[in-house]
Computed example of a mutant assay.
Amino acid sequence: MNDILVLDGAATAAALAPHRLMSAVADALVAVARDHVSAPPRIAAFAPGGLLGAMPGYVPGLGLAAKLVSVFADPDRPGRSTHRGIVALFDSEDGRPLAVMDAEPITAWRTAAAATHSALALARPGPAVVVGTGAQARAQVSLLASLRPAEPVTVAGRDHAAARATAGLHPAGRAVDSIEAAVREATTVYCCTGATRPVLRRHWLAPGTHVSSVGGSHGPELDPETVRDAALFTEWPGAATTPPPSGAHELQGLPADRAVTLLGSVLSGDAPGRRSPDELTVFKSTGHAALDVAAAYVVHRTVTGGFTEDPLP
């Protein structure tokens, strides 16, 4: 067997070039929407303190990979969870294992990339707020800092010191004490929490707000009224049709005639996005193996010198 590249968390994170990641994640989302991806619904084994999920996937042009990720409550931070694991990348032509990477930065950054694509495609111009101060919130703020460093971002969370530290990752970041006040002023809300019950309320959201909700592994992050009133977008159909942990808590039991649009269809132009300035839009992310494949592709190509073109600006 040829040598397998093994990358720890720091090396994996360093190779996640933001613009290349955004491009690869967009390709993966479109491939999912067009049914070009081979990826079974996520399965999980449950332990007393959490779960171990398995997510294999193949995306044409990006590769073949599988993620094993544990989601456990963090005893040092009540109400929050840890996401740890590995991503294994294989040669899609002959099946050779090529690399093993730390899943934590891959999960955080590919999720942030999908959430950012939803905002770019669906949100109106205006203030953005990131709700949360954990690993996913830090990745979201860091990605926004790389892509649009001049556009201000507000960070709101229960721990103000953590909110200040997270806001400090963005050159135009600021922290506030009140989640409600920040959300009421926002045009785009990135909800990045380990919630077990809703942290956003419908009456906080102004007409035309866009919500990118990527948390809620252990319970709903959004209240039923927000889901009821919003145009809904997801990465894959199973977010609404399969039970947790593969499906979203918020999207269980939707009426049979309720439309849920795939974000990749919006990115490709195959489906419309926002239909009016006052429409409330929600992107509900559950994660998808195709996004892990996209991130692993970027990491491997970056480390091995597989990219010959300069990064996008």
Score class of each variant (00 low, 15 high):
G247D: 08
A231D: 13
S276H: 10
L254W: 03
L263I: 02
G273L: 02
L262D: 00
A231K: 04
L263V: 03
G238R: 13
A240K: 07
S276A: 15
D278I: 00
L280K: 07
L254H: 05
P272R: 07
E279L: 00
L267M: 08
R275S: 15
G273P: 05
S265M: 05
S246V: 13
T242C: 14
L232W: 08
P243H: 03
P243K: 07
L262V: 04
E225F: 10
V227R: 10
T234M: 02
E279D: 14
S276I: 07
A248N: 08
V266Y: 05
A256R: 11
P277Q: 05
V266A: 01
D270F: 03
W236P: 06
D257R: 02
L280T: 10
R228S: 15
G238F: 09
H249G: 08
A240C: 07
T261G: 01
A248D: 11
P237F: 02
S268W: 06
R274M: 01
L251F: 11
G273Q: 02
R258H: 03
Q252L: 11
S265V: 00
L251G: 11
D229W: 09
E225D: 15
V266Q: 00
G253E: 12
W236G: 00
L251E: 10
A256P: 00
S276Y: 03
G264Q: 06
P277I: 09
L254Q: 04
A231P: 05
L280C: 10
T261Q: 00
T226C: 14
P224G: 14
L262A: 01
A271Q: 01
F233A: 01
A231E: 12
H249L: 09
D229E: 15
S246K: 11
V260E: 04
V260N: 04
W236I: 09
T241G: 00
G238M: 07
Q252Y: 08
A256E: 14
G238P: 05
D278N: 10
Q252H: 06
D278K: 04
T242F: 12
P272N: 07
P224Q: 14
T234Y: 01
T234P: 06
P237Q: 06
P237S: 07
A230I: 13
V227G: 11
W236D: 06
D270C: 02
E235G: 13
L262M: 04
F233T: 01
Q252F: 03
D223L: 14
E235V: 10
P244D: 06
E250C: 13
T241W: 02
L254C: 08
P244G: 06
G247W: 02
P224H: 13
G253N: 14
A248L: 13
E279R: 07
L263H: 00
P243S: 08
A230F: 11
A231T: 11
T241C: 06
P224T: 14
A248K: 10
P237N: 05
P243M: 07
S246Y: 12
G247E: 06
S276E: 12
S268G: 03
P255A: 08
R275P: 01
D257M: 02
P245S: 13
F233Q: 01
L251W: 09
F233M: 04
G253T: 12
L254N: 07
E225M: 12
E250R: 12
